[in-house]
Nucleic acid binder design. Structure first.
Lengths: 342, 342
DNA sequence: ATCGATATTTGACACGCGTAAATTTACAGG
DNA sequence: CCTGTAAATTTACGCGTGTCAAATATCGAT
């Protein structure tokens, strides 16, 4: 199925009996040429399997067909899942997704944005590190490249933000916990991004609305090794008996998984049944939360909607030229996932 | 700090008072120009912050500075960790890592290799899907592009293979389990890659060597949702009472996490202490295995060494021209990680 | 057959950089 | 100061594609 080697569009055009500019047009949009022409080209395509040189193409386009995807920490399956979803949708639209992880490091995040700039992407989907992010750098980047933020917001930056309605989701689970047992305390580490802050505040508000005194347990810890922090500080918390309630609501599932392990280590039975010493709940419905012991009660973030809407919004910006409309924040509601831990 | 905008190397060369070819040489290797020249260029660099156009560069290089990294399933933190490590080491060497995930789909794996080819990468680090991989496609790809396989082997393909010594690691844990309690059965799903086969066979050999009858429990299941399979089939296994021993060695940690959840669900206490009905062990020392309840006894794969050696091997091939030496398989030993589950 | 509206072809230039050959300049050592 | 050598410059061409203007071909409908 291979004829003589084809090096460039010139040769391929000759081989298919079509002029080079027309072939170029074909590769830009298959339907922009006459049907009979398209047939000829596609026949030749099977015979010689030629592919246009990406670098030569992109050199001459002001914008490429690349879509940058930046997540803060790829070793977190939550982001891996979202990235997978986003990648697929970009491919479906004929774009080329390029995935980056900041690995929790602000320096790397900056470097990535820098590299991304020279890739001349059509658009970028960015989930910032959060508190650690260099907001000046991000703002400047968003000024140059059509960017949609997701997961973690940076106020006023980018074309749009897509995320979760932490206020809604937290009050959902706070209400559930209060309804079914002792009012929860709130277990958090230093807030790594705005979501963490919003969740704590939402917890306090929900508790006050329900007439309970809020109790925030703020522990030390940094970085993205949440389970480790949850475990270490969970042990400390349990040993020091600073717990005024038998119910712990964790700022996120990974933290909760750590606390779960700590409770197990300290011999505390976790669950909502009789004979249980502790109820533990999380937030996110992390991919692994179904398989903890006991399975984790949590609030599911709407992964699919967040990634879908992010992509849709970005392409809306790309196709309709851009900053015509005001920046929009879209927040998706969480769903209560009752399992056995609380 | 910005003068007038610089569009290309021509203008930048003029602005820095150096000829364009010399500037080009500088960007190729900073130390290939005289110190005084380098200073001049770098001063101009601060004033104008110009960056060469990647696409124009790559168009003219037969090989780029890109390194392709392909993993079978990025939502598995094991691969996310390895990818992170590999990315960093490529960056350190002045190369540009590009990360791809096959997401468990052979079609996508093929597409990725296809795209990769047109990226003209200097080299590729490939962890194949395994059984599902289209081996013909992979072999052909490795023939065109310097490729080092890791994690999952395809016999005779690529410049080298870096992985774990499953035979050693499995017999390590089988011996441990036999020494400290009842000999284990082996819990596996249909082998997704050669490692799975090797582990089963290593189990059988180790058991026979120790004078115990091997017992392999082969359950149904497919795809990369190992926890789900472990959970579902774990429940079935426990309910049907087909267990002839109180010790279960799982083909990998993620499977073990599922079985752990199943045991919890069925009210079986897991651990090596008194009052425990079941011992469960895994293989890999998955990032989350420390935080299961109880913490999972397993064999640690040498993540760091595998990724380090893979990168080193690839650069050895890249720099020393290639297939001078015979293809080498490098296997790293596992280390026993005793925790509470077995 | 004729005509108008599209599609295509031709020819040419642009993009930004790699790279080679020949020439000139800079620098260290005597 | 001279000289040999390493480094820099000049000049020029090549890479593979985008894109434009003008000329020509094709097609459907009148």
């Amino acid at each position: 199925m291979e004829g003589p080697k084809i090096k460039n569009m010139e040769e391929f055009a000759a081989a298919s009996g079509i002029s080079r500019p027309t072939v170029s047009k074909y590769f830009h949009d298959m339907n922009s040429v006459r049907a009979s022409t398209r047939r000829k080209i596609e026949e030749a395509l099977e015979q010689y399997d030629y592919r246009p040189n990406i670098y030569a193409i992109n050199q001459n386009r002001r914008l490429t067909k690349n879509i940058g995807i930046v997540v803060p920490y790829l070793a977190d399956p939550f982001f891996a899942e979202i990235a997978r979803n986003i990648e697929r949708r970009c491919l479906d639209r004929g774009f080329w997704p390029i995935l980056f992880s900041s690995h929790g490091e602000p320096t790397l995040e900056n470097d990535i944005l820098d590299s991304l700039r020279s890739l001349k992407p059509a658009g970028v989907l960015l989930a910032p590190l959060g508190r650690a992010s260099d907001k000046g750098v991000i703002a400047k980047f968003c000024n140059d490249v059509p960017t949609v933020l997701f997961d973690s917001n940076v106020e006023g930056v980018g074309k749009a933000f897509i995320g979760s309605d932490n206020s809604q989701s937290i009050s959902l689970i706070v209400e559930y916990l209060c309804r079914t047992g002792e009012p929860p305390c709130f277990f958090e580490m230093p807030p790594i991004n705005p979501n963490a802050n919003k969740r704590r505040n939402a917890y306090i508000q929900a508790m006050e609305r329900l007439g309970h005194p809020p109790h925030v347990i703020h522990v030390k810890g940094e970085g993205w090794g949440f389970e480790e922090v949850g475990y270490r500080e969970g042990i400390r918390m349990i040993k020091s008996r600073e717990l005024s309630t038998n119910t712990v609501l964790c700022s996120n599932d990974r933290l909760a998984i750590g606390v779960l392990a700590a409770a197990y280590g300290e011999g505390l039975r976790v669950g909502r049944g009789g004979g249980c010493a502790l109820r533990i709940a999380g937030h996110d419905d992390h991919p692994f939360s179904r398989f903890t012991c006991p399975p984790l009660t949590t609030v599911a973030q709407d992964y699919a909607s967040i990634s879908d809407r992010s992509v849709e919004t970005l392409f809306d910006v790309i196709e309709n030229g851009g900053p015509t409309e005001k920046r929009v924040d879209t927040l998706f509601e969480g769903k209560l996932v009752m399992r056995e831990s609380a």
